[in-house]
């Protein structure tokens, strides 16, 4: 079924969100006058933090007020929940020594300090929004760059601690929900066209037998010798292509009574279950999301997407004051029941 052009989301609503959950753009930047984080002394880290903090204050007119979060003073569960919500990386949530984070109120813009690089500027948007996310990260980078001496080489571009990020030092990624293509085993086959465009795809969650919840992350791989806009165009083109393939596969699948049964069965379990482990819940929500996007179930895909994040252990522990796994399974089932009723 071709994507209905008349069914475009209203202004401000996320694009392509039947398949694309969110878009993230990260820019890595380092300060020329300090060793990269792995070789940086405690004193050096403090100086880097002070410089970036001052730059953010000076750039406030351009990028808006950012909250300064000292990660050492943030409870671990809050840090991990941020990682679950994709606001920071999992590495940053757990890293030692801890560092600092600059965060905009709506969490769309965040700057991790002394993660893998001195600065990791991140923009996060719902749905497919590569231009918007890049514009946000790029504007923050430009504004900060007026007050910071970045490590840059005319030939190698932005210099990064890990040589695989040299050049634009940009990683753009989209979080894709591909239940139908994954069930057909076609995600692996997509990788050929993916590599030709200098992109890569991987399961977003889980260690189990498949990508849990059929969530995949598609991102650009090549950073040197390509402009930001070329990389974004490639990613955009391939995302639209994959989304179209997924839609066709879903439409076929939902004609199959077996699939229809899986969707309704998952919906039934989630509506009435009293205990739900996070991996199970994610798998069932994947079917429900597919049924919701296909108009089969009386649920909006956005509600399901929200649940997919909200059910993660740390985020749930915070929202429902559920500290141990058993209480969480109970709280998780309750939260999902409430959302689906």
């Amino acid at each position: 079924m071709p994507h209905d052009k008349t069914n475009q989301p209203p202004a401000g609503a996320p694009h392509e969100d039947d398949v694309v959950l969110s878009t993230r753009v990260r820019l890595a930047r380092n300060l020329r006058d300090f060793p990269f984080p792995a070789r940086l002394s405690a004193e050096g880290r403090q100086k880097v933090a002070a410089q970036v903090r001052a730059a953010a204050a000076a750039a406030e007119d351009a990028i808006g007020p950012l909250q300064w979060i000292d990660m050492a003073r943030l409870p671990r569960v809050k840090a991990i929940s941020m990682a679950e919500r994709r606001v920071i990386s999992a590495e940053f949530a757990c890293q030692s020594p801890q560092s600092a984070l600059l965060l905009r109120n709506d969490e769309a813009l965040s700057i991790m300090l002394c993660e893998e690089d001195h600065l990791r500027i991140q923009a996060l948007c719902p749905g497919l929004a590569l231009s918007a996310a890049f514009a946000l990260a790029d504007a923050a980078d430009t504004a900060l760059g007026k007050h910071l001496a970045y490590a840059f080489d005319d030939h190698l571009g932005y210099l990064t601690q890990c040589p695989t990020n040299l050049g634009t030092a940009m990683r753009a990624s989209v979080l894709l929900h591909l239940p139908a293509l994954a069930a057909l085993g076609r995600v692996a086959r997509l990788s050929e066209s993916i590599s030709k465009l200098g992109l890569t795809i991987r399961g977003a969650f889980g260690e189990g037998s498949d990508a849990e919840g059929a969530l995949f992350q598609l991102s650009n791989q090549v950073t040197l010798g390509i402009t930001e806009s070329q990389a974004l165009e490639n990613l955009q083109a391939l995302t639209l292509q994959i989304a179209e393939q997924e839609r066709r596969a879903r439409a076929d699948a939902l004609k199959d009574p077996q699939w229809e049964n899986k969707v309704w069965r998952a919906y039934g379990i989630l509506k009435y279950a009293r205990f739900l482990e996070s991996g199970d819940a994610l798998k069932l929500l994947s079917y429900v999301r597919m049924g919701a996007a296909g108009g089969l179930l009386p649920v909006s895909p956005a509600v399901v997407s929200t649940l997919m994040t909200a059910l993660q252990p740390a985020t749930l522990a915070l929202s429902r004051a559920a500290d141990d796994p058993a209480t969480r399974d109970l709280a998780r089932a309750e939260m999902i029941r409430e959302a689906l009723s």
Binding site: D138, D141, T142, G145, K146, H147, L148, A149, Y150, F152, D153, D154, H155, L156, G157, Y158, P163, T164, L166, G167, T168, M170, V222, T223, L224, G225, I226, T227, E228, Q230
Partner: peptide, 20 residues
């Protein structure tokens, strides 16, 4: 680096403040 990236010439953005 050439083997990792297949290219050795940056094509993207340049920092605003850097005279170089």
């Amino acid at each position: 680096l050439a083997r990792i990236h297949g290219a050795l010439e940056h094509a993207g953005k340049t920092p605003a403040a850097d005279p170089a």
